[in-house]
Design a protein around this nucleic acid. Sequence first.
DNA 1: TGGTTGACAGTCC
DNA 2: CGGACTGCCAACC
Length: 104
Amino acid sequence: MTEFQNIVYNATIKIPCGQVTTYKLLAQYINCGSCQAVGQALKVNPFAPKVPCHRVISSSRTIGGFAGSTDAKVLAKKYALLASEGIVFKDGKVPKKFIFHYTK
DNA sequence: TGGTTGACAGTCC
DNA sequence: CGGACTGCCAACC
């Protein structure tokens, strides 16, 4: 467990149910220039599903990846998880109203 | 023990 | 649409 991972998980948990955020927003919030670093931390997150990594999507509001994979079957599970929280994808994207913005 | 290399659930140009 | 760049981590000398 590194300090950086701890920050990422802590920030991810703050995402309220029924909303999602983007890798970029998350990276900016934790003052990290690279969103890949965030994805890498989420990929190996030891707190799943306590850390809702499915609530983190790509910028442009596309779904991105999940569980270290971009496979369509895995992404289908991510869709289902989000749908169970009331988040629906419109035309492969998440409506803006579902995007959670961090407030410092 | 410590510096370097490659990989990554992304983003920008 | 392809390539470059980003920061962090793990593996490898």
